[in-house]
Design a protein around this nucleic acid. Structure first.
Length: 442
RNA sequence: GACCCCUUCGUCUAGCGGUUAGGACACAUCCCUUUCACGGAUGCGACACGAGUUCGAUUCUCGUAGGGGUCGCCA
């Protein structure tokens, strides 16, 4: 039988890391087996659900590259995929329970499901067999007085209706799973195979929730300068260890390696530093064009504009090993995009520090002015020649040029900067630095 | 309170009776180097505790402690 799995979020807020990883594992399982991945929106709580939240969850999943075979926007044979539109189905299932004498009404009209009160064992891929003794809990409410249904009921009905074979979900559901199995049994249906995955905790061990740093996909990752591939990869490492040499694995490799049995049973703390490391790894592998594509909005957000995409791509690519987040790009490359770049305080100090600096810069400029061909190598040779003529090391001249050309004390190679901005701007910038900073020295 | 899950370096983890307890991130030092990074090397650093079982426990069992979860007309 072909595997059918689902991600069933309730649209009460942003897509959360925990939810994203649950979706991820389900997606991996489906893709590995050639099965079906379903997105089902559990919007049965009219008071808390919003259309914006549903749209946000979909946006987050698309960003991560988690496409679904059945669900909102794509349809499928088991729809509708919004629980708020499936009332007739729930009514029919409710009737079955009613006919079997398994429900009864409360004074206010709420309906409860009569538990079987037998020992129930959950067969779980992650936790093993977990047996719950006959419960003493009150029977559970499955329908509100207004006729709308409760999570446990619709969740089970839909898992039956949508023919789910496996249910991979957060471990917070484990304690309630016996109730679901009780319902499956009452319907005469076979429960799916469960896999309760460990929770993602804050660094301090507390449960990670909406407000916590690193928790919301859109806010903490999408808008924070992460690459989807890096987040995809990092999230997989929380609670699962693929049998591979490296932890850095592509979507395809992770899919091929996925094994629900290998998912851990202990919770994992979120580690931003490691997430950043993954992102940095992915960032530096991007081609100039890809890096510009991903960095575009972040550059624009800082007011940087350009007309030459190739030049812009080369600029961001030149600092790819220096940043771990796309949001860091502007501060590293802004001077490639404008001539009125500011001079950092320590740069001003260093330029003014030694009286011979002006002479060194002028000598470099003169040599550079005579350079016909403009490549990184020719720039390098020119600086070397200028330095040699003054009997100083190129190492004494390079930093000064860096200060002049970028206004910063750190960045890509000086020859790279000069080559990218071109001869004309290189000379003009040295001129500007000489006039505005160096010769202003008292 | 009851029930359920969990417990190896700071963090993510490998380990499935005998290992100098391995790797990754982080951190520190060194090398490379026109800066910052990258890269390379080295170092720091863990089996929660107590009983059992066993010739031998990180590994199996029980207990304790600690962490997390569930017990809603939320999902």
């Amino acid at each position: 039988m072909s595997i059918r799995v689902r991600f069933a979020p309730s649209p009460t807020g942003d897509l959360h890391v925990g939810g994203a990883r649950t979706a991820l594992f389900n997606w991996l399982m489906a893709r590995k087996s050639g099965g079906t991945f379903i997105l089902r929106v559990e919007d049965t709580d009219g008071a808390r659900n919003t259309a914006e939240a549903a749209a946000g969850i979909i946006k987050g999943m698309r960003w991560l590259g988690l496409d679904w075979d059945e669900g909102p926007e794509v349809g499928g044979d088991c729809g509708p995929y919004f629980q708020s539109q499936r009332k007739n189905i729930y009514d029919a299932y409710f009737k079955k329970l009613e006919d079997a004498g398994r429900v009864y009404a409360e004074a206010d009209g709420a309906m409860r499901f009569k538990f079987s009160r037998t020992a129930i064992t959950v067969h779980d891929l992650v936790c093993g067999d977990v047996t719950f003794a006959p419960t003493e809990e009150p029977d559970m409410t499955i329908r509100r007085p207004d006729g709308s249904y409760i999570f446990h009921f619709v969740n089970v009905v839909d898992d039956i209706e949508m023919r789910m074979t496996h249910v991979l979900r957060g471990e917070d559901h484990l304690s309630n799973t016996w109730k679901h199995i009780d319902l499956f049994n009452a319907f005469g249906a076979t429960p799916p195979t469960y896999a309760h995955i460990p929770l993602i905790l804050n660094p301090d061990g507390s449960k990670m929730s909406k407000r916590d740093e690193g928790s919301a996909i859109e806010h903490s990752y999408m808008n924070a300068g992460f690459l989807p591939a890096a987040v995809f990869n990092y999230l997989c490492m929380l609670g699962w260890t693929p049998k591979a040499e490296s932890e850095k694995l592509s979507r395809e490799e992770l899919t091929a390696l996925f094994d629900a049995d290998a998912i851990h049973s202990s919770n994992a703390k979120f580690d931003l530093k490691k997430a950043l490391w993954f992102n940095a790894q992915y960032l530096r592998e991007l081609s100039p064009e890809e890096l510009l594509k991903h960095g575009r909005t972040f550059l624009a957000a800082k007011g940087l504009t350009w007309t030459d995409d190739a030049m812009a791509a080369a600029a961001v690519h030149s600092v790819r090993e220096k940043v771990s987040l796309l949001t860091e790009l502007p501060e590293w490359v802004h001077y490639f995009f404008r001539e009125d770049y500011p001079f950092e305080a320590d740069v001003v100090t260093k330029l003014k520090a030694k009286p011979e600096n002006a002479g060194l810069l002028k000598a470099a400029a003169e040599q550079l002015a005579q350079t016909a061909e403009w490549t990184e190598q020719s720039v390098h040779d020119a600086v070397e020649a200028a330095a040699k003529a003054l009997s100083v090391k190129p190492g004494a001249m390079m930093p000064l040029l860096r200060f002049a050309l970028s206004g910063q004390s750190r960045g890509p190679g000086v020859t790279t900067i000069a080559h990218l901005i071109g001869k004309e701007k290189t000379l003009a910038r040295i001129e500007r630095a000489l006039g505005e900073v160096v010769e202003n020295a008292v």
